[in-house]
Amino acid sequence: MKRTYSLVLFLIGMGLTQASVAKLNIFACEPEWASLVQALGGSQVTTTVATTAHQDPHRIEPRPSLIAKVRRADLLVCSGAELEIGWLPMLQRQAGNRKVLPGRVGYFETAQQVERLGIPEKLDRSMGDVHASGNPHVHLDPHRLLKIASALSERLITLDPSNTAHYRSRFDDFTSRWQQAVQQWQRIAEPLKGARVVVHHQDWDYLFDWLQIVKAGSLEPKPGLPTSAGHLAKLRQALKEEPAVAIIYTHYQSPKAANRLSQLTGIVALELPYTVGGGEGVTDLFSLYDETLKRLLKVIP
């Protein structure tokens, strides 16, 4: 009796999966990757995104709705490098979708496609929330992003070879627009070189690496740990000796700590979009970079 029952369920499952073959069903962990997938896949992909710019990608509830989405996905596009370690493995284990398990063709980790910064030499919980595979916030360096786009486009072709020409032409189009934009961004960002900036979390390492901005301190005493009065006092002292031009944070972080330090030091606190959807008019990766530079240049003329 039980056996017939599961056989019936199995067949229903098969039927429903077959029906959704027409378009690639893509589950992006963060909005920046949803935007990239949409740019590269166009009409051939349906994209759902697990998080918004208002949510901390380190801390997401493995909600029932996300399990249902992973269950139906053909491809997961996530940062990897342990950014999603607190919730994605739980979704993968619960969804029962073998196509998107680690090591399978349906699981794509963007941070694994590029060289990562901040790979720790030693791992210890007393150091805070450190990632063994390095800093996973890789999308704010345009050169690394293009490398990721290339690998992701290849992955789409592997999954959906009948539309190879479509994916190739979209990738070529994206590349030429991106390269043009990068040249312009580099030109206008010239004044940012060497500027000293305080950050909330290590979200900005790749942006700083690209623009040669100097990290003057972090509001989090250790990665992932909330700031404390003692730590702010220490920062204030350090900034007295070597001042900075801005304190940056993003939408998913509370502005309280940045504003407090701003009051203490007179250094301007600045909210940056960080990802797609993180500010007005930030609707894709191009406008994300445009707006980030615009806001930085406003305080660092």
Binding site: K2, G13, S65, I67, A68, R71, A95, G96
Partner: peptide
């Protein structure tokens, strides 16, 4: 225990144990 997650828009999971 055997469990099954339906490929539906909303989350639906059925399970049985012996």
């Amino acid at each position: 225990q055997i469990s099954w997650v339906a490929p539906t828009e909303h989350y639906l999971k059925l399970g049985g144990e012996m």
